[in-house]
Simulated scan of single mutants.
Amino acid sequence: MGKLEMEVEVKSSADKFWEAISDSATLFPKIFPEQYKSIEIVEGDGKSVGSIRLVKYAEGIPVITVSKEKIEVADAASKSTTYSVIDGDLANFYKNFKASLQIVPKGDGSLVKWSVEFEKASEEVPDPNLIQEFAVKTFNDLDAYLLKA
């Protein structure tokens, strides 16, 4: 099993950022059409444990067009969530892929902690650095959007 971790400082408050992340199924395709074609709730409400969502990525995103994710942890009190990829393009590259996100208040803004645990399907598969870069871009773009809203 491999693991990647990162932290991104944002200017938005932890409450505001968490609210936007919780509403990502509706919000992301609207504000990031160049990245997300759609996010469909397949099971549950899309926010709570056991919910399954189908993420369809825009044409410009390399390698990954679709990802089916199951929410494993959803804790509003600690502003943290964890989801596993259960189907889609990523499942061809990784036997296991579980991402965790936590938003921690920091001064007037917040710190977005993101990590992913993964098991490659084969040795040739690279670490998911592209996905990490995509996450950083999404958090920074979401912050910019929230600061304008």
Rank of each mutant, 00 (worst) to 15 (best):
S84T: 06
V116K: 10
K98F: 07
E124S: 15
L54G: 07
E119L: 07
T65V: 09
A58G: 09
D23A: 09
F118K: 04
A144F: 06
D45W: 03
A99G: 10
V116F: 08
S84D: 11
S78E: 14
V66S: 14
D127T: 08
M6P: 01
L54Q: 12
I21H: 06
D108T: 14
K56Q: 15
F139L: 00
Q132I: 12
K120G: 11
K137D: 15
K106V: 11
K11Y: 02
V55Y: 03
L142H: 06
F28S: 09
V42Y: 01
V10Q: 08
A58D: 08
L101M: 05
F139G: 07
V136R: 10
A144L: 05
R53H: 12
S12P: 01
Q102I: 01
V125Y: 05
F28A: 13
K68Q: 11
G44Q: 05
Y36L: 02
A135L: 02
I61H: 09
E59Q: 12
K47H: 05
G60M: 03
E59I: 00
S12Q: 08
D15E: 14
S67C: 14
Y145M: 02
D87Q: 08
M1C: 11
K3M: 11
M6W: 10
N129M: 13
K3Q: 15
E40C: 01
E19Q: 13
L130V: 11
K137H: 13
D89F: 00
E119T: 13
S110D: 07
K37V: 09
F93Q: 11
K148Q: 13
